[in-house]
Amino acid sequence: MHVRNKHRQGYDFAQLCIANPALKQYLITNPRGEDTIDFADRAAIIALNQALLCCDYGVKFWQLPEPFLCPPVPGRADYIHALADLLADDNQGTPPTGKQVRCLDIGTGANLIYPLIGQAEYGWQFTGSDINPMAVSVAQTIAKANGLGIKIKQQKDERAIFRGVISAKDYYQLTLCNPPFHESEQAAQAGTARKWRNLGKVPQNAKLNFGGHAPELWCPGGELAFIKTMIEESQMFAEQVGWFTSLVSKKDNLAALKKALQAVKPSDIRVIEMQQGQKVSRFIAWRF
């Protein structure tokens, strides 16, 4: 993980149970005799996230109703820290901090995870957008309950990403996004089935998986189509955004995305890899 990631050394479950006593009921012992949880249990993951957010990021209230996606906090933190390094390149090698750094989280979701981590770690000012009115409502509740000045905007046009969200007077140092990966509900269900098989388990209810639904998990054309739309629209806001960025789950999509970027002629294109254990993730970034 990133050198500034608070979760590099694993989880201190004793400390986390103090932060969130509800976590204790989900503790199990692994073959090495260490405390852990069942990471296929949504309730256990939510309790863990509540503890992590409270203990490490000062978030006192965090609730996530069904069917919203329950994110892994360490991986989300890595994206924030990598973005800080990207901004540091134009700040004499030091990650900039404070509210003067304004960020737009596209598809912030009900979990609001990136603004919560980014504001706690660097003091950045966040705006989140989402097309789902229920997700917007839940995210607003989390922000308000924690006294955070995070703005949440609803994207009302399902064909748009930045349009209708970035107003004429806005400027953002960066945008970030975890785009929907799958091309359809069927593809998402197949992906969920693979996760269960890899865990050696059969879900009691096939529809109750690891959390998430449209548009969190799928959209027409999947992540490739979504990011291509983002690239096309980014031209319209070239003077209002420093860096446009998006996670890219499928490495094979990079070639097509670079080709799409070349067509809009940005001044800089970067692909930045992040590693969490054996898993390698990445995001693509561009600016005009």
Rank of each mutant, 00 (worst) to 15 (best):
Q63I: 10
W62K: 05
P31F: 04
P21A: 04
T36V: 10
I28M: 13
V59M: 12
N49K: 10
I45P: 00
T36L: 09
K24P: 01
L27C: 07
A51R: 01
P31A: 10
A51K: 02
L27M: 09
T36H: 01
L27A: 06
L52Y: 00
C55S: 13
C55G: 12
W62H: 02
K60D: 13
N30H: 04
A51V: 06
A44H: 07
L53W: 00
T29Q: 09
D35Q: 07
A51D: 12
A22L: 13
I28A: 11
A43M: 12
A43C: 13
A22C: 15
G33M: 02
C54L: 15
G33Y: 00
Q25N: 15
G58T: 08
K60T: 07
D41H: 08
D56I: 01
A47V: 08
L53Y: 02
G58M: 14
P31T: 06
L48E: 01
A44E: 15
T29E: 09
I46A: 05
P31E: 10
Q63P: 10
Q50T: 13
Q63C: 12
R32P: 12
K60L: 13
V59A: 13
R42T: 13
L53Q: 05
C54V: 15
L23C: 09
D35F: 03
G33D: 03
Q50F: 06
N49F: 07
I37F: 00
A44R: 05
A51E: 07
Y26T: 11
F61T: 02
L48A: 02
R32Q: 15
A40P: 05
I28T: 11
F39C: 09
G33C: 06
A43F: 07
D56R: 01
Q25P: 14
I37C: 03
I46S: 02
I46V: 12
A40R: 12
R42H: 12
R32H: 10
A47G: 10
T36Q: 11
D41N: 14
C55E: 14
Q63W: 06
L53D: 03
Q25G: 15
N30S: 09
